[in-house]
């Protein structure tokens, strides 16, 4: 004990003053590093196992170049306009496949071309709506040249996964009552429309003002669902 005291005294005597002055800074710095490391580790682990913690802007919702409201297009009831605050518009209950046309036939669900949007929005929607103005500009309805819209991707699978929408929609729509682990309400249907089964993985998009990923969409989830529904679980079904 005494030797320790002496050691400390010796240290106190020999250590230069500038180091002593820096000590609290170093201590705080060390703590800060630990805190950051911990936070990063926690983030990485949650990102690996599921969805990231919705803090620091790591939320799944993304700001799209045009604030497209899925609510007004696909929902039922009154929804706020994204372009004109304070206005409410009746949901149109459009079918998902009206825009996502290739979902029943192809790998990708498909994002509609601007031309499809402008088919209606040439006429529909007030001119003062700034979001619609962006769309009309992209569609070439103004003086400017038409230009594509770069939507931000919400659902993205890794490069080594080959997900194909078509067989999933086919299975889910053909015998909705037999599906295990289906979205609420699907089992009660005797025959389902494609748009009634999207929510199995995508959640209730019709009620989302900004679309976000609601399911983890990790391999474990895919495999669980495949097992429950006796779908093939061979690796090559998705990985090739």
């Amino acid at each position: 004990m005494a030797s320790l005291l002496e050691f400390i005294k010796e240290k106190h005597r020999t250590t230069p003053l500038w180091i002593k002055a820096l000590a609290p800074v170093l201590l705080l710095g060390g703590l800060a590093v630990f805190a950051v490391t911990g936070a990063v580790t926690a983030f990485v682990i949650t990102a690996w196992l599921g969805q990231p913690i919705p803090v620091l802007g790591f939320d799944q919702t993304v700001k799209q170049p045009i604030a497209f409201p899925h609510t007004i297009h696909a929902g039922t009831g009154l929804f706020p306009s994204t372009g004109l605050p304070g206005q409410f518009i009746d949901g149109l209950e459009m079918d998902c496949t009206f825009c996502h046309r290739t979902v029943t036939s192809q790998a990708n669900a498909g994002v509609p071309p601007v031309a499809l949007c402008s088919y209606c929005h040439k006429v529909i929607g007030p001119e003062e709506n700034p979001e619609l103005a962006k769309l009309r500009k992209a569609a070439g309805l103004t003086e400017e040249d038409p230009s594509p819209i770069n939507w931000k991707r919400v659902h993205r699978l890794p490069d080594h996964v080959r997900f194909v929408h078509e067989p999933h929609i086919r299975y889910l729509t053909q015998h909705p009552s037999e599906i295990r682990n289906a979205a609420p309400g699907v089992n009660q249907l005797s025959e389902a429309l494609p748009s009634q089964v999207c929510s199995t993985c995508h959640g209730d998009v019709a009620s989302m003002l900004e679309v976000k990923q609601v399911e983890a969409l990790k391999m474990g989830q895919c495999v669980d669902c495949h097992r429950e529904n006796e779908a093939p679980t061979d690796c090559t079904v998705c990985h090739h």
């Binding site: 509609p112 071309p113 601007v114 031309a115 939507w151 991707r153």
Partner: peptide, 19 residues
């Protein structure tokens, strides 16, 4: 480029994604 999905202005059949 991996993080965007592009809506082309027109969509001829050979531009449909995945097809």
């Amino acid at each position: 480029r991996e993080l965007i999905v592009q809506s082309p202005v027109e969509l001829p059949e050979d531009l449909v994604r995945g097809e």
